[in-house]
């Protein structure tokens, strides 16, 4: 697959070598990472299992996840692999079907957030001057305002909003850390020869940004995407747990919300709380493992002393880096 991608770009003929080769290298690196790095392999396998659950939930779980059709609070059995909840719904079916919405939230809002990071970060670095100051100030402010309370406050004014505003707010509040990183990387590219060459050739700015700069930053963009995805999985689940979003939807966060409301913890219905929480943790871990592995591969200096890229510790880690 990575070969065809590289060949397609080279067929353009406009720039032999350069960015086309960079993206080919990255694709190759991703594949090699999954094959050789245990962490990456584990992350990829978990993700693949969840993807299958999300794509074919009906084939895996035959019960209707929404039907209140079964006995209440049944223990696990062959008919109900994870038992039923206090409302008489099949927990196995709910867990399998929940993968779809949870994955969509993680991937869609992660991707949108990354694109926003790219726009804000790369534009700031490339345009420079007042643009840089302005865009950077907005990013810095959003980096400092505590994200989770901000999410809650914005969503509080949208009590019947459902899933779309939840994702939109996640995107807007979650882009800043990535924008910070991408801006730094783009700044370091600014004086490079291949960009000078493009400018001398008379290429237009959009061409330089999209064809020259972005392809050479793919591995960092990948890291930003994975980091944001981890964060969004947890943040979305947390928000759904306290009742934001659409409580009638099928996702792991909503399952936890109903488990809490149905007093699953107090009445000993363990699987109602454990199954969705474990899935969230595993999905988060899958993204985190992939991120960790790419970090090790992309940055040889870290291979012995592996550092971690995390969305939570973000603000002061940047600060610490700036300080040292």
């Amino acid at each position: 697959m990575q070969i065809s991608a590289g060949a397609g770009q080279a067929a353009d003929g406009s720039q032999p070598g350069g960015p086309a080769r960079a993206s080919e290298r990255t694709a190759g690196r991703v594949w090699r990472a999954v094959r050789t790095n245990k962490k990456a392999a584990a992350g990829a396998i978990i993700l693949a299992i969840f993807a299958i659950m999300a794509l074919f939930p009906g084939q895996i779980a035959h019960d209707n996840p929404r039907a209140f059709a079964y006995g209440r609070s049944l223990g696990p059995s062959l008919h109900h692999l994870l038992g039923t909840n206090a409302l008489g719904q099949d927990l196995f079916a709910q867990t399998i079907w929940g993968a779809r919405e949870t994955l969509i939230i993680a991937l869609a809002s992660g991707a949108a957030s990354t694109i926003l990071s790219m726009i804000m970060g790369i534009a700031a670095a490339y345009l420079g001057g007042l643009w840089d100051h302005g865009l950077n100030l907005i990013t810095d402010i959003l980096l400092v305002i505590p994200t989770f309370p901000l999410l809650i406050v914005i969503l509080a004014y949208l009590p019947h909003g459902g899933l779309v505003p939840l994702m939109a707010v996640l995107v807007i509040t979650g882009y800043s850390y990535g924008a910070r990183q991408l801006r730094a990387e783009a700044l370091s590219l600014r004086g490079r020869d291949f960009l000078e060459a493009a400018r001398v050739r008379g290429e237009r700015k959009p061409y330089i940004i999209f064809v020259e700069i972005i392809p050479s930053m793919t591995s960092l963009i990948m890291a930003v995407f994975l980091g944001t995805a981890v964060y969004n999985v947890i943040a979305a689940a947390s928000l759904q747990f306290i009742g934001f979003g659409d409580p009638s939807s099928l996702s792991w966060g909503t399952m936890l919300y109903w488990a809490q409301n149905g007093e699953a913890l107090q009445t000993g219905q363990y699987l109602w709380a454990i199954a969705p929480g474990l899935c969230i943790a595993l999905l988060g871990a899958a993204f985190a493992l992939l991120n960790y592995a790419f970090d090790e591969i992309g940055n040889p200096a870290l291979q012995r002393v592996a550092a971690r890229r995390s969305r939570y510790t973000a603000p002061w880690r940047i600060r610490a880096k700036r300080a040292s």
Binding site: V230, I234, L256, G277, I280, A281, Y292
Partner: peptide
């Protein structure tokens, strides 16, 4: 271990403790 725990929502750890 830390890579795993960092991706667990901490309210869920609380739920497990309550259980």
């Amino acid at each position: 271990v830390f890579v795993i725990t960092s991706s667990i929502p901490f309210f869920w750890i609380g739920m497990l403790l309550i259980l």
